[in-house]
């Protein structure tokens, strides 16, 4: 069908008055043709106003719809504010996982050897380290991500993917429900590598859950879900930035890191033991906050990432190259 023919169908399409096959043609055409897309947008808006909006659904309709929604897709579990980014990442990964086929679960998704099924077991294993901190019973035991992952993989490989998904989600939900409203001060765990307080540990879990969700999205060829919400990506970026001085070390000076986009911000990253007396940054690095988080999660090539550098560009490039070495996100 020619593009002219498709154009003549747009009004009928907006009125749901063409065949399903024709509707499919129109919908496939729209992203490729700005003129038709503009016409479609305009006509859809006109059709949307034909009925008005003056009737109200019967009383109780929202409550009934909400409980049906919970049954079809469990929402992010209510939790303390500092754990909300983790609860959100769990809900988004679960949305992706519930859509996968048996063949998808077998695809290799990360580290060249872990299937999607293995990766979910790995997430559950590492989450378990924090579940233990929250006082939840955790089986099998293990004090670091590698040991626990080995033990959990051994168990989960004998289960089917649906059982693994359910036990991962059940543990995550229990963690959200157990997170105290006021988190304890001080170091809660060293199991993820660096010493972390409880809010940081949960942000680190949110971060890894997101990064692996993107791994699974790519491995299974699904449409990508949006990157973390601005408030959540900011927490992740902040966490990553705090560990940057440990990966690039100089005697003095600092790099100004300007992370753009919603949830971004500007940070001075010290390269040596002291910032005293140094007001001008030795280098300036500017990049998108979500891309920065992917870089720090070792999912972007430092040479390929779209970043602007200023000042001592050699230092800036060295700084960018060192970012993926961050240990906080395994």
């Amino acid at each position: 069908m020619s593009s002219m023919d498709i154009h003549s169908l747009i009004a009928a399409w907006a009125l749901n008055a063409c065949s399903p096959a024709e509707a499919g043609l129109v919908e496939a055409h729209l992203p490729t043709c700005p003129d038709c897309a503009r016409e479609a947008r305009r006509l859809v808006e006109v059709v949307a106003r034909l009925s008005g909006a003056d009737l109200r659904p019967p009383a109780g309709s929202l409550a009934r719809t909400r409980s049906a929604a919970r049954r079809r897709r469990p929402p992010a579990t209510a939790t303390a504010a500092y754990a909300a980014s983790y609860a959100a990442q769990v809900a988004a990964l679960d949305l992706l996982l519930t859509d996968l086929t048996a063949a998808d679960w077998r695809r290799i998704a990360a580290y060249g050897e872990l299937s999607v099924h293995d990766l979910v077991a790995h997430l559950a294993a590492t989450d378990g380290l924090i579940a233990g901190v929250l006082g939840l019973p955790v089986e099998p035991l293990g004090d670091d991500p590698a040991t626990r992952t080995a033990a959990v993989l051994d168990r989960e490989r004998r289960r089917n993917p649906e059982q693994t998904r359910r036990s991962w989600r059940a543990q995550a939900d229990a963690m959200c429900r157990s997170a105290p409203a006021n988190p304890p001060l001080g170091v809660a765990t060293t199991a993820l590598g660096p010493p972390l307080c409880l809010p940081d540990a949960l942000t680190a879990r949110a971060y890894e859950t997101w990064i692996h969700r993107e791994d699974i999205t790519v491995a299974t060829g699904r449409r990508p879900l949006p990157p973390p919400l601005p408030g959540h990506v900011r927490l992740m970026a902040e966490l990553a930035v705090r560990f940057l001085p440990q990966v690039v070390s100089r005697t003095a000076g600092h790099v100004r890191l300007e992370l753009t986009g919603e949830g971004g911000g500007t940070w001075s990253v010290p390269l040596g033991p002291s910032l005293a007396g140094v007001s001008r940054p030795a280098a300036v690095v500017t990049l998108d906050v979500v891309e920065f988080c992917r870089l720090a999660g070792d999912r972007r090539d430092p040479d390929g990432v779209a970043a602007e550098v200023g000042g001592d560009t050699g230092l800036a490039r060295e700084f960018l190259a060192a970012v993926p070495a961050l240990a906080v996100v395994p």
């Binding site: 929202l62 909400r66 992010a76």
Partner: peptide, 24 residues
Amino acid sequence: DELAYGDEAAFTDLHERFAPLVYT
């Protein structure tokens, strides 16, 4: 995006804003 992240408050907001339109 909030719906994608399973935000039930966003779902309630969506319903409150658009249920009259959809139902009508």
